[in-house]
Deep mutational scan, measured.
Amino acid sequence: TEDARKEAKKIIDNGGSPDEAAKFIKKYGLSEDQARELVKRAL
């Protein structure tokens, strides 16, 4: 979702790792793979 993508970008912009961002956005109901893909797109 757009919200999850924004959250991921915010985490990374604040110095978080892509892994942290992926873990965080899994709470939106995404699978591990979906979360990682979304983080990649957010970069």
Rank of each mutant, 00 (worst) to 15 (best):
G29Q: 02
L30G: 02
R41K: 12
K40F: 13
R36T: 07
I12A: 03
G16S: 05
P18E: 12
I12Y: 04
D19C: 13
A21F: 15
A4N: 01
E32D: 13
F24H: 14
D13M: 12
A35H: 01
F24R: 13
V39L: 10
A22L: 15
S17M: 04
I11P: 03
G29A: 01
A22Y: 14
R41T: 11
L30S: 01
A21K: 06
D3L: 15
K27A: 07
K10D: 08
Y28P: 00
A22G: 05
S17N: 06
K23G: 11
I12Q: 02
A4D: 01
K40G: 09
K40C: 14
A4R: 03
D33H: 09
K26V: 13
K10H: 09
A21Q: 02
P18V: 13
L30Y: 09
K26W: 03
T1Q: 12
K23C: 14
K9F: 06
A35N: 02
L43D: 02
N14E: 10
L30I: 08
D33A: 12
R36I: 12
K9A: 07
S31M: 02
D33P: 05
Q34T: 07
Q34N: 01
I11F: 12
K40R: 12
R36Y: 12
T1R: 11
S31C: 01
A21N: 07
L43C: 12
L43H: 05
D3M: 14
D33E: 13
A8H: 03
N14S: 12
R5P: 02
A22W: 10
R5A: 12
R41C: 15
G16N: 04
E2T: 10
G15P: 02
I25E: 10
Q34C: 14
L38D: 01
L43V: 08
K40S: 11
D33W: 07
N14R: 13
G16K: 03
R36W: 14
D33M: 08
I12K: 02
K9Y: 04
V39E: 01
L43Y: 04
E2W: 02
I11Y: 08
E7L: 11
S17Y: 04
K26Y: 07
K26P: 14
G16V: 05
I12V: 05
E32M: 11
E32R: 00
K40T: 11
G29R: 00
A4K: 03
F24P: 06
D33R: 06
L43N: 03
S31D: 11
D3Y: 10
S17R: 02
K27P: 00
K9N: 03
D13E: 13
N14P: 01
T1A: 12
D33Y: 07
K40I: 12
A35S: 02
R41W: 12
E7D: 12
S31H: 01
G29Y: 00
G15R: 02
D13R: 11
Y28T: 05
L30W: 03
E37I: 05
D3F: 12
K6I: 13
K10G: 06
D19R: 08
L38Q: 05
K9L: 13
K6P: 03
A42D: 03
E20Q: 09
G16T: 02
L43P: 00
R5H: 09
E20D: 13
I12P: 01
A42K: 01
I12S: 02
G15Y: 04
A21L: 15
A4P: 08
A21D: 07
I12T: 02
Q34E: 13
D13W: 09
E7A: 14
K27R: 09
E37Y: 00
E20R: 03
E32A: 07
T1M: 15
L30M: 05
D13G: 07
R5I: 15
G15C: 09
